[in-house]
């Protein structure tokens, strides 16, 4: 059951990820990216990270994708005219990706520690939200405050950047 859910959503995530980089129309790319994030959220939920999965849908598939679509429509981006690919950069990119994938496969498949199946939890129904809240506000209270300041400065930065004339 969990295995078939994993294969289904992993295939969906990677297929929509590939369609993001292959489609020419920016709006189709943005919609594929939204589907990619939603199936990734389903993968998080198969790993018992319910809160993170829901946050993924709310923040990424909701807020971030709306922002992307808004910018695409604001700039009125059309389908890209296909230009000739620079042969050197294409070859370099494909080589780097192939080297990365072969190294990763070698490391992941060679280590027996990575071959373990999902371990059962001592508590049958872990209260995910409660435990994340406890950890966040006990051990990570200061980073939590810092992230608030970061969001505030990002908001101010966006307002400064989007003024008509920069002074």
């Amino acid at each position: 059951m969990l295995l078939s859910a994993f294969w289904f959503f992993a295939t969906l995530t990677i297929a929509f990820g590939i369609s993001v980089i292959l489609l020419r129309n920016p709006v189709s790319c943005a919609m594929s990216l939204a589907m990619c994030f939603i199936s990734l959220a389903a993968l998080f939920i198969t790993l018992d990270a319910t809160l993170i999965g829901i946050m993924q849908i709310l923040v990424y598939a909701g807020a971030v994708m709306v922002l992307f679509l808004f910018i695409i429509m604001l700039l009125d981006l059309r389908t890209e005219k296909s230009r000739r690919l620079n042969f050197g950069t294409t070859l370099g990119g494909v080589l780097v990706i192939a080297a990365f994938l072969s190294m990763l496969t070698q490391i992941v498949l060679s280590n027996p520690q990575f071959a373990q199946t999902i371990p059962t939890l001592a508590l049958p129904t872990p209260d995910n939200v409660k435990m994340i809240g406890m950890t966040l506000f006990h051990s990570y209270a200061l980073p939590f405050e810092a992230i608030g300041v970061l969001l505030l400065s990002a908001t101010v930065g966006v307002i400064v950047l989007s003024r008509r004339t920069l002074r």
């Binding site: 990575f114 373990q116 199946t117």
Partner: peptide, 18 residues
């Protein structure tokens, strides 16, 4: 049951796509 290697490979392939 999916293994840890399954998830790590899915994550790695997604990273390579990006």
């Amino acid at each position: 049951m999916p293994t840890l290697a399954n998830y790590l490979l899915a994550s790695g392939i997604l990273f390579a796509v990006g």
